[in-house]
Design a protein around this nucleic acid. Structure first.
Lengths: 96, 96
DNA sequence: TTGACATATCGGAAAATCTCGATATAATAA
DNA sequence: TTATTATATCGAGATTTTCCGATATGTCAA
């Protein structure tokens, strides 16, 4: 619970999570379908204006918190929201 | 939003908020009715095992985040959960 | 008024977080 | 195989958070 709240309590990470809610609206990829495949790290990096290493670490944090899933495919790592876990979190927060 | 999540993303502060949900179960006061009046700082301090100054500061953070209300009455400061704000938060988190 | 109690504020040490550049790894293309 | 591209990891400086003790303020009781 704390680890999830910690992951969320950062503006940039929260923004990433929110962007991933509407991949098509927020990202454009030439090599994949962001809605189906997920959004690769480079696109997020480009949009958020943080260094590549920072984005990579932030995504790791979000993943450890269970808020996103990542999947390596070829040279890319695709990120998606973990809607199930997010719903679970909100449900838990209801009796905080 | 971020300020609220930051306030919540600390184990001790989250604990305080949760304790305040059931004042009668968690606190016993000789000079007031914790359910009606609220819980004074000293009781929280005693239970959580942090210094008086730290507890005072944490309560200030929770208050600034809108999660609790505090009211000075006599020499005591009584704390209560701000259920309305908490509900609002959870509602907002639903479309995070 | 003075002393005792409850809480708030201040200043700072230690730990954690933020963020970067450099470098490593992994996959692909030439 | 080598170069290129995408991502991960490492090490470190800057900033923020955690938490304390000392001190200040406010209230009450004698």
């Amino acid at each position: 619970m704390i680890i999830v709240l910690k992951a969320l309590s950062n503006e940039k990470r929260l923004k990433i999570l929110q962007w991933l809610k509407e991949p098509k609206k927020n990202f454009a990829s030439s090599h994949c379908d962001v809605a189906k495949d997920g959004v690769c790290v480079g696109l997020i990096e480009e949009k958020i204006g943080l260094s590549q290493s920072t984005v990579s670490q932030y995504l790791m944090l979000l993943q450890q918190a269970g808020l996103i899933t990542t999947e390596r495919r070829g040279q890319w790592t695709y990120c998606k929201r973990n809607e199930k876990a997010i719903k679970e979190l909100v449900k838990n927060l209801e009796n905080i």
